[in-house]
Each structure stands twice: as structure tokens, then as C-alpha cells.
Design a protein around this nucleic acid. Structure first.
Lengths: 203, 203
DNA sequence: CAGAAATTGAACACTACTGTTCATTCCGAG
DNA sequence: CTCGGAATGAACAGTAGTGTTCAATTTCTG
């Protein structure tokens, strides 16, 4: 094959859409074939095992996004900016790829792997910021803070996907609120959350 | 029948559990019968229409919780306390009824009706608090603030259901962080979030 | 343009679930 | 203790999905 764009990619993309629409983690192979614009036999030819498809989709999505977010964070000195940008990257991407966004919304709170994706980078930034005195919270509240960041981010994605807000507004508002919860002054939180958001690096 | 506890109730409870486990919104009638400890015929006897079962479960759950939360809020003068208690009621209930909690987690961000349930009361309290100068945010940020409250609450429920925190900790932390995001002083936010939580009124 | 590789779609035999019916229990209220 | 409504579970025919195979065709590649 030339490269990973033909059947495999289309099948994966279609699977993501179907999972997002139906909510379950099992899939109808005939439907998948039709959604991917591909013959039923092709699904099997490509070594797709329906039972594991969900996990594969989640794993692929999670590792890709995780890598890109980590790249985006590595050159940012201020943990407050890193956290704010992380949230906004998710929100913007939901806008740019609604299928991806809907998939996340559906499974954010039921797939552990997915949760790892959007909590592992914030976890690092959070601890950095706590030690540096940039954030104010008790160390034993860390998991609650992480949960708030994740929950707020996902909720902001929903606002965008439902057309209630632009990705800029939803992303900046979410980031601002999180930074305030972390103890930043309202004015500074607002300023950081409104910065230009650099493009998300390719992994 | 004596009263509404026999088949209907068990079927509904089992349906909630299955929906929460499987994620989809369609159900296998044979499986439902088995999970409810009831014969397959009984499902049909009780006028259950499999296609509408999901909506019925959601609607019942949403209206019940909505009514109880509204009751709990009506006598609370300080919007900050109302918001904090609302979040904590959800978190505690997830602890007391894990099936209910898992159901909410699964569908919080994909069922509009469910979202209404945990955003309508906060919406009222939020506006009250904004007008009273108790909360600091721009009026056009209201929907983002609501989203943050919902997202943070749901994420706190997850912490409890996964056994990472007690309901008291997760609930208080979530409430505290939300109040801080709303502009309250850290000390006051902490105090309000740690108050004794009254029982949730019966509807 | 020829050969290799991938894709197609029809065909196979199975299994599982569907909605619905109904004679047979079961069990609680009078 | 007996009567009646509720629950049972087996039976039915029909639909739809399953995994798998394979000759024919299309589409790349060298």
C-alpha cells in the first residue's frame, strides 16, 4: 500500500463515528462496512477483530493526543499557561474534528484509558505549579483538581459541539475558570486564558 | 398489586444497570429479563416498549432528582451554599446508589435531558449569586460556568465510584474548587464546602 | 503495460434476538 | 380455602447479525 490512508484509516474513522453515535462498545460489522464505504469482506481482510475494535480505537486516539499534548507542553515554562493551553487544545480540536469530539464526550467518564489521556499531562503541570507556589491547593486535593480540569474541559467541548459557544470562547472561559480555581488572580487568569493558542504539534 | 415495587420497579432498576454497563441505549430483552429476575414474557406484560425504555429511565431519573434538588435549594439564602450543596448531593448519592451514579456518568454528556437535570438548579442559583454580587464572572460566561459546575460534579462522582475518594472528600473538594472559580475567597470556599450536608429531601 | 496486491460482493451455514401467544402455575386478598 | 390477577416459560416464525470463503474485478506499482 502507499501509506496508511486507504481502507484501514477509513474503517477506523467510521468506527469512531459509530461508537460515538451509538454509545456502546460493540459494533455491527455490516453497518461498519457501509459507514466506511467498504465491502463487508474488506473489514475482515484488514485483520479487524470486532471485539477489540473499540479498545484499538481508544488506544490509538489516546496515545496520539497524549503525545501531541506532551510535545506542546514541553517548552512552556509557566504551568498555568501549560494547563490553560492543554484545555484549549482539546476544545479547539473538538471544533475541528467533531467526530473525535463526540467520541471523547461519550466515553470520557467510562474508559480509563481515555481518562489517562487528558489527565496525565495536567498531572505533571499541576505538580510543577504546586511546588513552584503558582497554584494554591492541598497536595491531597490533587486528584480532585485533576478531575475538575478534566470535567471542565469535557464540558467545554460539549458547549462547542452543541453550537452554544465558539471554541475560542468555550476554551478561554474553561481555562480561566480552572486557573481561578487553582488560585490565580482573576485578571491574570483571564489574560492567560485569552492568549493566542499555538497550533497543536504533530506527533 | 400492593404498590409499585414488584415487577415494574425491578425491571426499571435492572434496565438502569444494564444501560450503565453497556453504554448503548438499546437493550436485549432476554438479558433484561434475566437481570431483573423475571420471565421474558413479564417484560412485555408490563407494557415495556424496549425502544422507549431508555428515554423512560432517563426521564424518570431526571425529574425525580431535579425535584429533590429544587426542594433542597429553596430554603437556602446564600447561592454559594446552594451551589456547593447541590454538587455534594450528587456526589453523595452516587456513593449511596452506585448504579444510579454509573448511569449518570455514562450519559451525562450525551443525553440533553440528563444535562438539564444537573444544570437547571445551578443556573438559578448562579444568576441569583451574580446579581447579589456574590459571584464574579461576566454574564456571557454563564453557560461556561454552568458547564464547569456540571463537569466538575460528574468528575467528582467518578472519583467516588472508582474508590479514589470518599464522597465527603470528593464532594467538598469539588464544591470548594467551584466556589473559588466563582470568585470566593479560598478560606470561605473551604468553609462552605465543608459544612454538614443535610439529607436530600424526598420528592 | 503487465503483474501484484487489495477490494469486492455474493454465498454459506449458524446463532441470537425479536415480538407475540398461551396453557400452566403461583400467590395474596377476601 | 378459594378465587383471580400476575407471573411464568415454552413455543412460534421471522429477521438480522455472525464469521468465513472465494472467484472476479479494480487499482496501484514498477
Amino acid at each position: 500500500m502507499s501509506f496508511a490512508s486507504t481502507a484501514q484509516a477509513r474503517i477506523n474513522q467510521a468506527a469512531m463515528r459509530l461508537f460515538a453515535e451509538k454509545g456502546g462498545n460493540q459494533i455491527n460489522v455490516s453497518e461498519l462496512a457501509q459507514a466506511a464505504g467498504v465491502a463487508r469482506g474488506t473489514i475482515y481482510n484488514n485483520g479487524v477483530e470486532p471485539d477489540r475494535l473499540f479498545e484499538e480505537v481508544v488506544a490509538g486516539l489516546a496515545s496520539e493526543m497524549h503525545a501531541r499534548i506532551a510535545l506542546a507542553s514541553q517548552d512552556i515554562a509557566d504551568p498555568a499557561i501549560a494547563v490553560a493551553n492543554g484545555i484549549r487544545h482539546f476544545v479547539r480540536r473538538a471544533h475541528e474534528d467533531p467526530v473525535w469530539g463526540r467520541f471523547i464526550l461519550r466515553f470520557a467518564f467510562s474508559s480509563n484509558l481515555l481518562r489517562t489521556m487528558f489527565e496525565s499531562q495536567p498531572s505533571v503541570d499541576l505538580m510543577k505549579g504546586l511546588k513552584a507556589g503558582r497554584f494554591q491547593f492541598q497536595p491531597d486535593q490533587a486528584s480532585s483538581v485533576l478531575a475538575m480540569i478534566g470535567g471542565t474541559g469535557v464540558a467545554a467541548m460539549l458547549l462547542v459541539l452543541d453550537g452554544h459557544k465558539t471554541w475560542r470562547e468555550a476554551g478561554s472561559n474553561a481555562a480561566e475558570l480552572v486557573l481561578r480555581a487553582l488560585g490565580l488572580e482573576a485578571a491574570e487568569a483571564r489574560a492567560i486564558a485569552a492568549n493566542d493558542l499555538p497550533p497543536l504539534p504533530e506527533s
